[in-house]
Design a protein around this nucleic acid. Structure first.
Lengths: 269, 269
DNA sequence: ATGATCGGTTCGTATACTGAACCGTCGTTT
DNA sequence: AAACGACGGTTCAGTATACGAACCGATCAT
């Protein structure tokens, strides 16, 4: 691993839950030498990727990121096109919805919309999505490039008792996703969280991203599952269209028998 | 210079005007060896800071930036607070308005709002602002930390005939800013572009950013200058308040005699 | 065919990165 | 108030790692 990637990995220590960190905290989280971590932070500060709180000496993400993100979004305007469908998805299902995009062999969060209904809800606060342990990851392995399967097998970290940690278990999850058109996870990344994910395709016809709904497992009823799948399919179609792509016929076939569940149970009630 | 900063500097090759670049173009812009540039780009791709167009093999900024920018904005919500006043500023003056934030010794663009009135207008498409050649830079040197003066003197690049390239010339510009409360540049960065900048202060009482208006020099009348200064002062007060800061009394004194110019000439007409 | 340019690769050299140990400061504890 | 531990930051010898000239195969215009 190059020193550059090591330095840049420090950035993923920061999250909305932990926006400011001291040198020692960062060193501890990253599991690296203090002097090295310090120099890396200096490098990152020199280019505006982190900045220091002058009072506490803590580090936080820097302003250069905002400009770069703006340039990225201006050249590949994905966030803007996903916002509407994602908000509709969160509203319709009552649970947290999010979109994750694939770049090379990694799944990055693009946008999240917290559950508008529940105080106890899934929160998406990750720098990258593990391929084997999240519904989005399974969905990416199932519908994305072949190489993702090996990539997923290379890091079968066990997050919970339900995490698939063998090739066989992962193969089974992927097969189920290909059979249903949805990635699914039940407590595979965090206990008590269940999620469903649908693939999104871009203008090149390639798999580009996933849209997913994550909720508290105890709230999941057959009715809600049907609702989520129906809404996910709609969100996937909308975002795919907005990004200039179209869904493969194979996917549309899998989803063709989805129907809006009857209103026997309103998730907002 | 560390290899990390060298790699990260490649990111500033990208702009809204040049969102996708080939390896050779990047190498040429950055003035570096091809093999080194290639490896740096590999490193950046590994962490999602750039990604490759699979068809053209060109590079563009990657999706990881979006997530990091979101975390940054969530922890230091500056963009959101500056948006309203900036839009109002652009509307009132008819020219392009922007905000640049200081981190350490560098001025980074935060937000820009193109002229809503003119087809021929200033476009802010920079990765960082030169301290000596822009109104925002002069403003930062005048009202920011002492060290910025030396920082500015260390890179007196000559962009146009009007760029101040000596300590004496820079000192004079800074003195003028301190006397008026505004940084000013007339063709110092780009010929035919004139701009005014006002300082913004954050909750710690420190200079934090500048808000500026940039327009085509030939349109600048005494009336428009008075209008810009009046509106800039208002925008600076609004953003400073939104960031939890307050303007030093010395600045308010300098600005106390600004009055809204009479409507003898509507810039939108 | 030829040559120019592209993205990407190789390999020996030497530069710049590493991490154990150290420093001064600050806030607690005793 | 002395001792302590944790903090951010610094030093330096040793070596891991980054560098760039030269090279490769593909593509395209001449």
């Amino acid at each position: 691993m190059s020193s550059t990637t090591k330095a840049l990995e420090l950035l993923s220590c920061f999250s909305e839950a932990r926006p400011e960190l001291g040198l020692s905290e960062i060193r501890r989280i990253a599991g690296r030498d203090k002097a090295t971590t310090y120099r890396h932070l200096q490098d990152l500060e020199a280019v505006g990727f982190v900045e220091q709180n002058q009072v506490t000496k803590n580090y936080r993400l820097g302003p250069a990121l905002l400009h770069l993100a703006q340039v990225r979004e201006a050249s590949v305007p994905r966030k803007a096109g996903a916002e509407g469908p994602l908000a509709a998805l969160a509203k319709a299902t009552g649970e947290t919805a999010h979109v994750a995009v694939l770049s090379d062999k990694t799944l990055y969060p693009l946008l999240a919309r917290d559950s508008p209904t529940y105080a106890i809800r899934a929160i998406i606060d990750l720098a990258t999505f593990p391929l084997h342990a999240t519904s989005s990851g399974i969905c990416a392995v199932a519908f994305g490039p072949e190489a993702l399967f090996e990539q997923a097998c290379a890091a079968l970290e066990k997050y919970t008792e339900a995490t698939p940690v063998t090739r066989a278990a992962l193969t089974e999850e992927v097969a189920r996703a290909r059979a249903t058109g949805f990635g699914h996870g039940l407590g595979t990344f965090e206990a008590d969280i269940t999620s469903f994910a649908a693939p999104i395709f871009d203008q090149t016809g390639q798999f580009a991203a996933t849209v997913a709904v994550a909720g508290v497992a105890s709230r999941l009823t057959p009715h809600l599952e049907a609702l989520i799948k129906f809404e996910l399919a709609g969100a996937s179609r909308a975002i795919t269209r907005s990004w200039g792509g179209s869904l493969p016929a194979a996917i549309e076939d899998l989803w063709s028998d989805l129907t809006p569940p009857s209103e026997i149970q309103d998730p907002t009630s």
